[in-house]
Design a protein around this nucleic acid. Structure first.
Lengths: 220, 220
DNA sequence: TAGATTGTTAATCGATTAACAATC
DNA sequence: TAGATTGTTAATCGATTAACAATC
């Protein structure tokens, strides 16, 4: 078929896992895999894997499977991992610090360039290569520097305001750690949420469920 | 119907959002809501909300909707938020520090009691009320203290080993921040993953998609 | 009571899985 | 070539939405 117009979110969410596994296989010097090999490793069906790939093109070779490096490159390209992304962190509290300090993103071309906080006292001990500014410095920063993605790590009460400011500055790509829905702030906002509390609550549920009803009550 | 045996993961994942909204409504002194009110606020269908609730019992009153506090209490009870949970953090790096330092979980009855790391030099500046131990202290700790949930914040390479140790100590409830699938380590493991990279990659995809194809390419 | 809104059954929609012809 | 495995179409499954009788 090659390049469908609209692709379901379920498919997109699986791409990072494929990318990760292919990276491991590459590190193990595996050069070819079939959809069945991949399926085994990921505990999904081969059918699903082939369906997923077919949304984006034809990456395999009939009778021989997929070239690991090529396939990984294709997925990286789909996800945009083949070019650098400039990130800023807005809100330099616990999570903001964790993001700015985590170097692992760099391997996938994501670079935290600057952090912002209302409180100048917090802008100490910044990681190597990361600049710090108070919030009022954000417009000037945005005017002179490229910002691909903003990581919103402010308290819930500040999140809407920050999102509006970011949208006004043309930084509508938001990685949101505040427990609010920012997609309503503007039509242009592209937002992906990490809600740690929500995830913890789900674990709490399944921990109880497993105790009560045994392992059959667990998903997957 | 009242209390279905097995409930889909999609339903469970929506419960924290309901709980959060009901908390806000409670703070606004709203005492009653209909499924239509809730649906409006959450941008979902009223039908879905009623279906979701009906998995667990009958929480509403025909003709009058739901009592906000009562409903919130029911959902809190389903998620286990009505009683305290003792947490430990294993791996005291960037994410581990963020988790141990974040006080917000306490409002929902989750308490980080201790942190563990292979490197004793890292166990400095612990938050108020949090103890620090090297990894070899984990068995003794588990023997003398209650541990409901372990937050695994170690590097990928250490994650399997840590999960095996935790499982051996009977701490099979894992909130996993390492990019590996720990559910295979043991049948008893209940694991919920937060994979920050995966989420960032998905954002990267949608940022590109929005640029290319406009807002129609976005989900939700 | 009449109106509103639930809980639930039936219909629809979309995603996953199975099957298989195409072909390397 | 023969065997293997893809890409894709068709069948199944599950989740979401619509409809409505029950009832507060």
């Amino acid at each position: 078929m090659a390049k469908k117009a609209f692709i379901s979110e379920a498919v997109i969410k699986r791409l990072p896992r494929y990318h990760r596994l292919l990276g491991q296989l590459e590190a193990e010097n595996v050069s070819r895999v079939s959809s069945y090999d991949l399926a085994d490793r990921l505990n999904v069906t081969a059918s699903q894997i082939r369906q997923d790939f077919s949304n984006f093109g034809e990456f395999g070779q009939q009778g021989h499977g997929y070239n690991v490096s090529k396939l990984r490159g294709e997925i990286a390209s789909i996800l945009g991992l083949d070019r650098p992304h400039d990130l800023i962190v807005v809100g330099y509290g616990n999570i903001g610090r964790a993001l700015a300090g985590y170097s692992g993103f760099r391997d996938d071309n994501f670079f935290v360039r600057a952090v912002f906080d209302v409180d100048p006292a917090r802008l100490r001990d910044l990681p190597e290569g990361v600049e710090g500014f108070t919030m009022d410095g954000l417009p000037a920063y945005a005017a002179s520097r490229n910002v691909d993605i903003a990581c919103v790590c402010v308290p819930r009460s500040a999140a809407f305001g920050v999102a509006a400011v970011l949208d006004g500055l043309g930084i509508g790509r938001i990685w949101n750690f505040a427990p609010v829905d920012l997609s309503g702030v503007s039509k242009d906002i592209v937002c992906v949420n990490i809600n740690m509390s929500d995830s913890l609550f789900v674990l709490s549920y399944y921990a109880d469920a497993a105790r009560r009803d045994g392992p059959e009550s667990l998903p997957e």
